[in-house]
Design a protein around this nucleic acid. Structure first.
Lengths: 251, 251
DNA sequence: CGCCTCGTTGAGTTCAATCAAAACGGGTGG
DNA sequence: CCACCCGTTTTGATTGAACTCAACGAGGCG
């Protein structure tokens, strides 16, 4: 109908015998994801169930118990991070050959919501089962999975920060997050050393060094923080949280 | 000297007998990374070498052959994405208990540069060796590693886009990237369907729907693209690339 | 047909970048 | 110890880009 088709047509599967219609072999999955399995001994009998998702439906919701991850066979999704107060940040538009649900590994529940933008089809990859395979090295493998997942979650927060906060809110959020990280290491969360220059901080926050400096000065004047060079002390964490909540385009 | 110390002091290691000074056991590493290994059978003899990095030195450079990943034992780093034309984007400031180098797995070379912001210490995790463990399930494991790594690389690009491009550049970059993704799936890279609303696109790009719409209209007027609702055609990809190069604060 | 969401366009305003210059701080060498 | 230099930080004035508010047009669906 349209002059150009943009979906991997579901017919491909539908027209196959019914017995094969609802699953995918490991090699097919690897081909779909463009991952090379040469030299690896794989169980040829391993199959992955397919699942249809119609337009507007969510594959999983934020906060759902972590289960499988999903390889997209056809269609398009949007991945959305939902803020507490109802605002939302789109993190990406995964399409065929990409994977959904990876960010849930560490916390054991999905952190985002995946909504189909058109009728789509995904292969279900039972991640938990996968992770328990691999005998002696199994522990190490999970190790790394979690590290990677953690990193993903961190970057999602960063995208949220860059995508939906104004300049002062970004600086405020950064100060609070850095405090949390120091607290996690056993240090004070209200008094610490900024180890980076204003320029680096600006680059990280998507701001110029002047804007960063001005934000810090303003916070200092209003007694929210106390800052001298790289030495920083948070005086009113509550106010910082309020400033973060005053996002720019977030209602 | 300072009223509050913010570094995990290197003395902790230095003061131990020399034979133990330069390495870390698996359980210690897990503790450092705050990862639970309970119930997992681990090789207690497995150790990880420590490495010092002094302030200003790079642990690895962008483009280096991928080797180990690094767990930070003490200190602070900055992770920098270097653009072709010299501009740079800071992706994060990893500290103790976090991990460096994960984004290199998929492409087999590090995509970022990790510079120490203070004298620091890292544990070397020989990732390639790790990935080859795990017999029958080894293939699947690598499978997932790559997926995660890919995702990380994608989000780094997104952070670069949000952090250092102006509104029109963001839209232009998005259109080109989407074209590449469609090309990767075997479709036209110059003519495709936008499956998301302007609102979602705006959220993703850190812009309002109006700004997105205006950018598209402008591109349409100047014959760079042709757009009607969600139907899109790129007429002058070269010009789009130029627009992306005209970043806002980029060097 | 009427409703509703989505998209476009315009006018006015705000916020952060830019340009410019001065103050500061740490390090070096006289 | 002081003078100097460098990179960093701060502050000010101005500009411009993107947001906001508001209205209208177009398409989809019951």
């Amino acid at each position: 109908m349209r002059p150009h088709a943009n979906t991997l047509d579901a017919q491909v599967v539908l027209e196959q015998p019914a017995s094969r219609a609802a699953s995918l072999g490991l090699r097919e999955l690897a081909a779909l994801l463009k991952i090379d399995l040469d030299g690896v001994n794989v169980d040829p009998g391993m199959t992955f169930t397919l699942r249809r998702v119609q337009q507007g439906a969510a594959l999983y919701h934020a906060g759902d118990q972590f289960g499988p991850i999903y390889a997209i066979r056809s269609g398009t999704f949007k991945c959305v991070l939902l803020d507490a107060n109802g605002s939302y940040q789109v993190l990406g538009f995964p399409m065929a050959s990409e994977v959904l649900g990876l960010d849930g590994i560490e916390e054991q529940h999905y952190r985002t919501e995946a909504v189909a933008l058109e009728d789509s089809e995904v292969a279900i990859i039972p991640f938990p089962r996968l992770a328990h395979l691999g005998g002696r090295a199994g522990g190490l493998q999970q190790f790394v999975y979690r590290l990677l997942s953690r990193q993903l979650a961190r970057e999602h927060m960063q995208m949220w920060l860059l995508g939906s906060l104004g300049a002062e809110s970004r600086v405020a959020a950064f100060l609070l997050l850095l405090g949390e990280r120091y607290a996690h290491l056993g240090y004070s969360d209200t008094r610490y050393h900024l180890r980076m220059t204003r320029l680096d901080l600006g680059s990280f926050l998507g701001l110029t060094q002047e804007t960063v400096s001005r934000a810090l000065s303003r916070f200092h004047e209003t007694r929210v923080i106390q800052v001298h060079n790289k030495e920083l002390k948070i005086l009113d964490a509550e106010r910082l949280h309020q400033i973060v909540a005053n996002a720019r385009h977030s209602g």
